[in-house]
Amino acid sequence: MLNYNGKLIPTTSHFINQENRGLRYGDSLFETIRVVNSKIYFWEDHYLRLMASMRILRMEIPMSFTMEYLENQILDTITQNALENAAVRIRFTVFRNEGGLYAPKTNEISYIIEAKKLENTFFVIDESPYEVELFKDFYVNPDMLSTLKTNNKILNVVGSIFAKENGYQNCLLLNNQKMVVEALNGNLFLVSGKTIKTPPKSEGCLNGILRKKLIDILGKLEDYTFEEASISPFELQKADELFITNAIVGIQPITKYRKKIFANTVAKNLIGKLNAAARLG
Rank of each mutant, 00 (worst) to 15 (best):
S128C: 11
N81M: 01
N120I: 12
R91D: 11
L101H: 13
Y69P: 02
S64D: 03
E71M: 05
A115F: 00
A82Y: 12
P142R: 06
K117C: 11
N120M: 14
E84R: 13
R89S: 14
V94Y: 07
L145C: 11
N185R: 15
F92M: 06
P142T: 08
E119Q: 14
Q80N: 09
L184K: 01
K149E: 10
M179G: 01
V88H: 15
E133W: 01
Y69D: 04
K153R: 15
N81Y: 04
L83R: 12
G167K: 07
A87V: 13
E98C: 09
A163R: 01
Y139S: 06
A86W: 13
N120V: 11
G186D: 11
I125N: 05
D126T: 05
E60M: 01
V140G: 00
A82V: 12
Q177N: 07
F138W: 08
N97S: 13
S64M: 01
N175D: 03
N85K: 15
R58C: 06
E182A: 02
N176L: 10
V140N: 00
N152D: 12
N170F: 05
R89Y: 13
S160Q: 12
L155A: 06
T147S: 03
F95Y: 15
A82Q: 15
Q169N: 14
N187G: 05
F95S: 14
K105W: 14
L155R: 10
I74S: 02
S160W: 08
R96S: 00
E119H: 12
R58D: 03
G100H: 13
Q177P: 01
F92A: 06
K178D: 02
E71G: 02
V158W: 11
I109S: 04
L118G: 00
L83A: 09
F65K: 01
M59I: 00
M63W: 07
G186V: 04
K116W: 08
T147C: 08
T147H: 05
S64W: 03
T121S: 10
N166T: 05
I154Q: 13
I90M: 14
V157A: 08
L145Y: 13
I78Q: 05
Y168W: 04
I112H: 05
I113L: 04
S146H: 03
V124L: 10
Q177G: 03
N151Y: 06
F123L: 15
Y111G: 00
I90F: 14
F92L: 09
M59S: 01
N175G: 01
G100L: 13
N156V: 06
S146Q: 02
T93C: 13
S64Q: 05
Y111R: 05
E133K: 07
N166H: 04
S146D: 07
E98S: 14
V124T: 15
D137Q: 13
A163H: 07
P142N: 07
T66Y: 00
R89V: 10
M63T: 08
R96F: 03
N185E: 12
I112A: 05
K178W: 05
V124M: 15
G100I: 15
M63R: 12
T93L: 15
L57G: 03
N151K: 11
